[in-house]
Write a protein that binds this DNA or RNA. Structure first.
Lengths: 350, 350
DNA sequence: GCACTCTTCCAAAACGTTTCGGACGAATGC
DNA sequence: GCATTCGTCCGAAACGTTTTGGAAGAGTGC
């Protein structure tokens, strides 16, 4: 068996034409006669000819790949939602005949090193950068190098033009706070990450702004912060908040992600703190898990699959037309009301 | 800015050496003096030289990519578990300096067409094939073409040598059945897919064999089958089983996946059929969702992340040494006892 | 009949790498 | 002192594609 894949050379000698003509016929150039073009196309289709990626990449500089570096932590998928995002990327790329080059950054390597390696090896036409930090070195590197890229998330310090798509977590957390305030809540808490991810910054800012508008404030001792993936630190931080005297304990806690919210609800259950009677909990992400949690978790849906599709389309646009041609996008998250939030205990609410 | 990435040519002229020598120094050949080798290595590291993938692929035939084609259905990630599998692949590939080329098969294209395109474009050194069907045309294609590949799953008809890793669903479902029989169950049901996936075949075979050994049988009317992703057909099929008179209705139902099991439990709740008092339910996959379902879902853990790691390692082995050098692997799934199964109603159990 | 354009085709170069087959001294064996 | 080997190094070819700069021939205008 093992029939070798035909190449331009085989195809051209079979047709009695030059390699040039076959190449230009398939590319649809006008300097090859319609009759020849048809003949070439037919032969290419019949023999199953597909242009070799490496050859094409070498000459044209376009590899057909778009890169994504995903970190591995705790040997488990970082946030169930990355899967959805990746599928969105893949779907939009498939429409453009491109593929996703997925590189895993293991613990031993810095994420920036891996990114630089991928870019320096010239294996991609552009990069998707997910999970940005406030001052992300990857963004500086990519801007410096002039590599097309799109951020999923934002950075704070970079003034040079770059393209991003982000969920408006600031507006979402402000909305959550206003809804809870309207339900009579006055003491708020937050379960968050201690890492400098940009979304952490914005969501917290949204919460604090809404509280300020209502003449309230987020007490520092009502904030539980832990590094991503560190279950023990998280449990300890949550314990510090939940073990406050009931008269000082927050009656409503916002959580950076659904995963954190579910951990919080488990911790509350262990302490016989009833959700939502004693404590309202709101998450973010709308993971599939969240609708099966008991009580069902109130959260925000960021339509992560659509974000993936949009980021890929924006990146294709940047690759074709440069970053100046593409507008950054801030997309709203939808409030998903379930059963984990309700009126404040004590009946001051409606 | 936009400093161009140095290439072998720049590096060699900077060092006053030939391209050949620089290339061979970096590759560690013995015909370059240790002193020169060090000098070259140092210069390469300093300038951030990384060999161009396209150039290398063109000459050596090795692209550094391993391919995976994932289907998109219902615009949502097919089974949460694929994400875990992909991360396992990526992790093991990263250790070998390779990357994953993820191609999405959209509805319009046949999965085989996409696979053939990827292979014919020479963009990968090998393929991972997931979700095999009993008589999978992809396997025939890859064996015909002599492309290195590893199946995640099995096929039934292919006699030519090929490498696979699969979860032993046959043993798992047999074990589940025996456990339920020991708990007094006599009437069994099955929620399954009507699609010809190989795992469907094996798991059902395991169930039926265990029943046969106990002098029991799986009644055809106790089997709910629907195409993957078709929620309505699934609901209708489940309804037909659950709406049987209680005296004939199965007291224990095995489900091909956790997703199906959760749909079954929801349908049972709507009909006030208590799980596990009236009905025992066992799933497969151990999705994160399953531990949050109420009652917690009894299931099997296939250690999907490890499967990804192992499949990638096997594929690297096949690429290096050919398929004959690699043994197929059947891995056991772990029984995860939670609260969705129990003694048969009527107290015949222990 | 001549200069010109238009259509259709092609040879050759280039992209960056690896590798084959040497070349050139210096050291070795006799 | 001569042939041989060894240690280093290099030129050139090749992988498959795209593109530049033509060439050859037919048709057109005068």
């Amino acid at each position: 068996m093992e029939r070798r894949q035909p190449r331009l050379k085989e195809l051209s000698s079979e047709l009695g034409l030059s390699i040039t003509t076959v190449s230009r016929a398939l590319a649809g150039y006008s300097d090859v006669s319609p009759a020849t073009r048809e003949r070439v196309r037919e032969a290419a289709a019949r023999s199953g000819y597909v242009p070799n990626r490496a050859g094409r990449a070498l000459k044209s500089g376009q590899t057909g790949f778009v890169g994504l570096v995903v970190p591995v932590r705790d040997a488990q998928f970082i946030d169930a939602f990355l899967g959805e995002f990746v599928m969105g990327l893949g779907e939009a790329l498939a429409e453009a005949g491109r593929d996703l080059a997925l590189t895993t950054a293991t613990r031993r390597q810095d994420e920036l090193d891996v990114l630089a390696h991928v870019v320096n090896a010239g294996q991609v036409d552009g990069m998707v950068v997910s999970r940005t930090t406030c001052d992300d070195p990857r963004v500086r590197f990519l801007v410096d190098r002039g590599v097309p890229f799109v951020l999923h998330g934002r950075v704070l310090g970079e003034s040079r033009p770059h393209v991003w798509l982000d969920t408006d977590g600031e507006a979402a957390f402000a909305e959550a706070a206003r809804r809870l305030i309207a339900l009579g809540h006055r003491r708020f808490g937050l379960v968050t990450f201690s890492d400098p991810m940009t979304f952490v910054h914005y969501r917290r800012a949204g919460l604090e702004a809404a509280l300020r508008d209502a003449g309230l404030a987020l007490a520092p001792e009502a904030v539980a912060a832990a590094p991503r993936g560190d279950r023990e630190a998280l449990a300890a931080a949550i314990a510090r908040v939940l073990d406050m005297p009931a008269s000082q304990r927050p009656t409503a806690i916002l959580c950076m992600t659904d995963t954190l919210a579910i951990a919080l609800m488990e911790a509350a259950r262990e302490r016989s703190i009833a959700v939502p009677a004693d404590l309202s909990v709101i998450g973010f992400d709308n993971l599939p898990v969240s609708s099966f949690a008991r009580p069902g978790l109130t959260t925000f849906d960021a339509r992560i699959h659509e974000c993936g599709v949009d980021v890929a389309r924006m990146l294709l646009d940047v690759i074709a037309n440069g970053p100046a041609a593409v507008e950054p996008r801030l997309v709203a998250a939808d409030f998903i009301a379930r059963d984990s939030h309700g009126p404040a205990p004590g009946g001051r609410g409606p």
